[in-house]
Design a protein around this nucleic acid. Structure first.
Length: 309
RNA sequence: CGCGGAGUAGAGCAGCUUGGUAGCUCGUCGGGCUCAUAACCCGGAGGUCAGGAGGUUCAAAUCCCCUCUCCGCAA
C-alpha cells in the first residue's frame, strides 16, 4: 500500500517513524515550508522534513493545496492512502477524495471533543481527567470525519501540555498502525461523531499568559501546566515579567491575599483567589535563564507579602 | 545591523558609578548541640571574575576596544 504522509511538528514524527519501521511504503511526505525560527530568524525545516529526508522519502512543501495544486502532486505519487498528522493546512475535497482509501487523520483528542488546532493543550488547560488520540476518516469539515479508532489516557495531575504531547505522540503512532491493520483487513467500523457533543480547541496565543491570581489554585495550576511549553504562564514582579513553570498545589501554609508571594524553603508559593496556594517550582525572570524558584529566591529575595501580577 | 538584560566558587546573586590583595545566600566537607532534624552553632575546601600574552594604569572583576555565549521583548 502506497502512503503519502502529511505532517509538520514533532508530534508527527513518531507516527511517520512507525510507518517506516512497520514496512509501509511511504512514497512522499508533505510538510509546511521551512520557517524562520528564534531571535536570529534562522530558516529551519520542520521536524517531519528532517525525518523524511533521513529516510530518503521525497519531501513536498507546497504553499497551497487549493486549486488542484495538491492533487497535481498526488497524481505522480499515486497513493492508496494519505495519513495526516498535525499538517497545518486544510485539505480540499478533491485532495481528500483522490486516494483509494481517502485520508486518515490522527487527532490529539477524544473526538468529538476538542476538534481543532490545540486539543492537547486545551484539555490540560481545562483540567480534563482524560486525553486521547482519535483516528478518523477525514471529510471536508474540521475534524468532523467518522471515527475509526480511539485510545484514551489519564492526564496526570502535574502533567504539562508538553509532557502529555510526548505521551500522545507515542500513542498516536500506535493508533495509526492499528488503524492501518484494520484498513488492510477491511475491518474498519467507522463511527459517526455526535456533533451535539463537539467542542472546539482554538489555537493558544500569548494573551493567555498573564495569571489572574483571583482564580482558584486549581485553575491557575491548570493554566501554568497547560501553557507549558508555550506560550507559558506569566506574572509580574518588580515591573518585570516572570514566567512560571512546574507548579503544584500546596496546602496548610496559612492565608494570604490573591497574588501574595510566600518564599519557602523549597520554592516560591503564591496565594490564589480561593485561599489555596500554588507552589511554583521553576521560574524564568526577564533576561534570566529558567531556574528552580528556590535558586531564584537566593539571588532575588522576595519579601513575604509582595503581591505579584 | 529591530529593542533590551546577562556572563564572578557546584547553584543563585552582590561588587563595577567613585580602579587598590573577591563577598552574600545555598550546597559541599569536617566538628558540635539535640531523642531527632531540611533546625541551630563552629570551622574548612572550592574562583585564570566568558575569551582576547588587547588598550589605559604603579595597579583592572571594576575604565576603553574587539569576539563568543545565554536570555527577555518584538517579529
Amino acid at each position: 500500500m502506497k502512503i503519502v504522509y502529511m505532517g509538520t511538528p514533532d508530534f508527527a514524527v513518531a507516527p511517520l517513524k512507525a510507518l517506516i519501521e512497520n514496512g509501509y511504503d511511504v512514497v512522499g511526505a508533505f510538510t509546511q515550508p521551512d520557517k524562520p525560527v528564534g531571535r536570529k530568524a534562522v530558516l529551519t525545516p520542520p521536524p517531519v522534513k528532517v525525518t523524511a529526508l533521513e529516510n530518503n522519502i521525497p519531501v513536498f512543501q507546497p504553499d497551497t493545496l487549493k486549486n488542484g495544486e495538491g492533487v497535481k502532486l498526488l497524481e505522480d505519487l499515486k497513493p492508496d492512502l494519505c495519513v495526516v498528522v498535525a499538517y497545518g493546512k486544510i485539505l480540499p475535497e478533491d485532495f481528500l477524495a483522490f486516494p483509494k482509501y481517502g485520508c486518515i487523520n490522527i487527532h490529539g483528542s477524544i473526538l468529538p471533543e476538542y476538534r481543532g488546532a490545540a486539543p492537547i493543550q486545551r484539555s490540560v488547560l481545562d483540567g480534563c481527567e482524560f486525553a486521547g488520540v482519535t483516528a478518523m476518516q477525514m471529510d471536508k469539515g474540521l475534524d468532523t470525519g467518522d471515527m475509526l479508532l480511539v485510545e484514551k489516557t489519564r492526564i496526570l495531575s502535574d502533567e504539562t501540555s508538553g509532557d502529555l504531547y510526548e505521551r500522545l505522540t507515542v500513542i498516536g503512532a500506535e493508533v495509526l498502525i492499528k488503524t492501518l491493520h484494520l484498513v488492510e483487513n477491511g475491518e474498519l467500523q467507522p463511527v459517526k461523531q455526535d456533533d451535539s457533543q463537539s467542542t472546539y480547541a482554538a489555537m493558544l496565543d500569548k494573551s493567555m499568559s498573564p495569571v489572574d491570581w483571583t482564580k482558584s489554585a486549581q485553575e491557575i495550576h491548570n493554566q501554568i501546566r497547560g501553557l507549558d511549553p508555550w506560550p507559558v504562564a506569566q506574572t509580574v514582579l518588580n515591573g518585570k515579567n516572570l514566567k512560571l513553570f512546574r507548579s503544584s498545589l500546596v496546602s496548610d501554609i496559612g492565608d494570604g491575599k490573591p497574588g501574595e508571594a510566600l518564599p519557602l524553603k523549597n520554592g516560591l508559593a503564591v496565594f490564589c483567589g480561593d485561599g489555596n496556594a500554588v507552589l511554583i517550582n521553576e521560574v524564568q525572570y526577564e533576561g534570566k535563564k529558567r531556574m528552580k524558584s528556590a535558586d531564584f529566591l537566593r539571588g532575588c529575595p522576595i519579601e513575604k507579602g509582595t503581591i505579584l501580577g
